[in-house]
């Protein structure tokens, strides 16, 4: 379980990114974290994974409190898929990129191999094993970035805009991939249609605070609520709304 209590965070220039957030995310939940640009989604992720240091409040992963001395253990439990897969893939072979985390855990060669193969098989991309990451398509890179985190067997995965910059087919492939994952998923996204597809719960961040938190349908179908924090209905709902208005006329 991920437990956040009274978490606040300000950048060194004084800009407040997170204001007194309280959250509980249960094991196996699939949560969409939505909000306008600058709402605090990436800042929250950085705090959870320990890239930014917590100054006020606390974050707990199960019994483990996120602190400087526990970061190594925290990062074994929580993985993060970055928005730009090029930031995540830096080795010469896909295999080595996926093996990077397990090798840092000092696993034996056999265990590393097993982890890599499992991750590739789970995502159905075994054929990319010996390819060079920089030669892959955007969608393939995104899936390999997910595999590079999966190979660490995390309990929670944070996804930062997993469907951005992708063509429709690659986007659908990534969504299908996310659907397959059984661990806790927290997905920061502007893709509300995807959230509607695969998340059971939606949290709206607005100016660093939790603006709304509830079941996906309750949140994403509430136009008034969404407009109040610079969001709008998912495209599929907008279409339905237009059709309904046309038929009413």
């Amino acid at each position: 379980m991920l437990e956040i209590e009274k978490l606040s965070y300000a950048y060194p220039d004084g800009h407040i990114a997170i204001r007194e957030i309280d959250l509980k995310i249960n094991d196996g939940e699939s949560v969409a974290l939505v909000g306008a640009n600058g709402a605090g989604k990436s800042s929250l992720f950085k705090l959870i994974i320990g890239i930014s240091q917590i100054k006020e409040g606390s974050i707990k992963i199960g019994d483990l409190s996120v602190e400087k001395k526990t970061l190594k253990d925290v990062r074994k439990k929580v993985g993060m898929v970055f928005q730009n897969p090029d930031d995540q893939l830096f080795m010469t072979k896909v295999y080595d990129d996926i093996a990077f985390g397990p090798r840092n855990e000092l696993l034996s060669d056999e265990e590393v191999e097993e982890r890599v193969n499992n991750a590739l098989e789970m995502l159905g991309v075994t054929h990319l094993r010996d390819r060079m990451p920089h030669r892959l398509s955007g969608g393939e890179k995104r899936v390999i970035a997910i595999a590079s985190v999966l190979s660490m067997n995390p309990q929670i995965i944070l996804f930062d805009e997993p469907t951005s910059f992708l063509d429709p087919s690659a986007r659908r492939n990534v969504i299908n991939t996310l659907e397959k994952l059984e661990m806790t998923k927290i997905i920061a996204t502007h893709d509300l249609d995807m959230a509607l597809d695969i998340c059971d719960r939606v949290i709206i961040l607005h100016h660093g605070s939790v603006f709304a938190d509830g079941k996906t349908d309750d949140i994403l179908l509430n136009e008034e609520l969404l407009l109040g924090c610079h969001l709008e209905l998912p495209f599929c709902m907008q279409k339905r709304k237009v059709r309904k208005q046309d038929s009413d006329k």
């Binding site: 950085k46 994974i49 890239i51 190594k72 990062r75 074994k76 993985g79 993060m80 970055f82 730009n84 930031d87 995540q88 830096f90 990077f100 985390g101 840092n104 855990e105 590079s148 985190v149 660490m152």
Partner: peptide, 13 residues
Amino acid sequence: ENIYYAMKCRGYD
């Protein structure tokens, strides 16, 4: 910086 963070997140020390 992002690459370094991505490495740190996967146990690089």
